[in-house]
Amino acid sequence: MVADAGMIAIGAGIAVGLAGIGAGMGEQAIGAAAVGAMAEDEKFFGKGLLMTVIPESIAIFGLVVALILLFVFNA
């Protein structure tokens, strides 16, 4: 059971970590483009910020998987 708990924790860590890297890769391109757009027109700030968080879904899916692992499977 202890080993199971450990494997679950590692699994949760991998889920969050890899999802975070994926989201980061998505965000880097959007973020750079948004800063570029903002340099031309400051009014783009709101839209740019919003577009930058769109790939964050991926990180959140990872987080949800981790939560399910930790709280549902562990219980």
């Binding site: 879904s57 959140i60 899916f61 987080l63 949800v64 939560l67």
Partner: peptide, 14 residues
């Protein structure tokens, strides 16, 4: 994925 996306409501809060 649209439906699953709403799980962020819990995830962000947690």
């Amino acid at each position: 994925s649209n439906v699953l996306s709403y799980s962020r409501i819990l995830a962000i809060g947690l």
